[in-house]
Computed example of a mutant assay.
Amino acid sequence: MIKKKGAKPLVPAQPYKFRKRYNQLDLIFRKEKKFLYFIAFSLIAAGIVYPYPSLAMWVGFAFAGYSAIANDSIQTIGTFIVSNEDKKWYWQWLFMGLIFLVTVTYSWVTLAGDVSFQRLATPGLDQAPQQFVYLQLASPIILLLLTRFRVPVSTTFMLLSIFTATSGTIVSMVNKSLAGYAVAFGSAFVLYLLLSRVIKRFIKGEAHIAWTVAQWVISGFLWYIWLVQDLANIAVYLPRQLQATEFIAFSGFIFLGLGALFYMKGDKIQHIINEKSEVHDVRSATIIDLVYALILYYFKEVNNLPMSTTWVFVGLLAGRELAMRIRAQDSAVHIGKTFKLIGKDVVSVTIGLIISIILAVAINPVMQEELKSYLLK
């Protein structure tokens, strides 16, 4: 056959595309090889220790402690880290670490050994686990893997739902979290739609030192409110009343884990913050943290039921980003890109919810029966 001039090649260039994709995956594997080996080792270790409750609870706590704080760092200290890049990491760590120690000690002393601010007093979570199943220890490892790939999963659902005895508690947690997302989205959207031009007028030139002081104070308050809400996610593996030695181990591990997180500047999940508009400026970061802290404080006062602070934070960033684009009268392309970012974050937290529900049903026979009854209706 004579090939006509200008004709397309008879064999498509698929091998090149496959080769390119293979090389990309190979590069990712080589970059993450040590981490993937750690995940594999952790999953094996979880399988070895889960039949021994006294050991399993501390192994589960260790995995949950680091994975929960690493994933949720974008909410509470993400803007703090990115807007204080010129500050030494150890000063940031000592500031947030001391707030953590004071907060958790207050709960432990005033609530007779409870470090969760009674968030674990919710029916279905009020009893410490006497036996563990493998998936309960594997869940925080899965969370750690998702964190590595920049997925802002709700730690409340990933870690608490696997210990919840009834589906009613999970439904209540989901409803409260959805309400938190809606309130955060609406509040940020209205605030930035009405005040974005005023805010932009402030965010010009070099920030006054008073903004830095205000941001550290507000970030500290936000960190305290987050701890009140989310310490339950870590403490769920442990007895509901900790003895003195147990409390020292609990608080010491998290304090050192915070140091590692600040040293790594938030690690991979920090990308969720970095891609948003103007968060590097201390004035913008201060406003974000203040709105977020007030919303969390409101929901803290509503009741002691745990909720997903991740959903609240994602809603806050989404409402802010959309309002700023609309107020700036950006082109349809830029607004479309904003909706794409919002959708990507919503998909991420939804994936986490689906995974957590699957794990909860797989672990809990009561939920399996409830699901069967619902499907057979």
Rank of each mutant, 00 (worst) to 15 (best):
K3M: 09
G6M: 13
V11H: 15
P15R: 07
K17R: 15
F18Y: 14
R19I: 12
K20P: 07
K20W: 14
Y22T: 05
K31G: 10
E32Q: 09
L36D: 00
F38S: 14
F41R: 11
A45V: 12
G47Y: 12
I48K: 04
P51Y: 02
G60S: 02
G60M: 01
D72L: 02
S73R: 00
I74V: 13
I81K: 03
S83C: 12
N84I: 10
D86N: 15
D86L: 09
Y90M: 03
W93L: 08
G97Q: 06
L101T: 14
L101D: 13
V109E: 07
L111S: 03
D114L: 00
Q118G: 07
G124Y: 00
A128M: 00
Q131E: 13
Y134L: 14
L137K: 01
I141A: 02
I141Q: 05
L145E: 11
L145G: 08
F149C: 06
F149M: 05
V151C: 05
T155L: 05
T156W: 03
I162M: 06
F163L: 01
S167D: 11
V171R: 09
V174D: 03
N175M: 11
K176F: 11
A179P: 13
Y181N: 04
A182K: 03
F185Y: 07
L191M: 14
I199M: 07
I203H: 01
K204S: 14
E206R: 09
A207Y: 07
V213S: 04
Q215E: 08
W216G: 00
G220C: 03
F221N: 06
Y224Q: 06
W226F: 14
L231R: 00
A232R: 00
I234C: 04
Y237N: 07
Q241R: 13
I254W: 03
L256A: 07
L258T: 05
A260W: 06
Y263E: 04
M264N: 07
Q270A: 12
I287R: 01
D289W: 07
P306F: 04
P306K: 03
G319E: 01
G336F: 08
K337P: 13
K337T: 14
V347N: 11
T350G: 09
I354P: 07
I355K: 00
S356F: 02
S356G: 12
V361H: 01
I363F: 05
E370H: 13
S373Q: 14
Y374E: 06
L376Q: 14
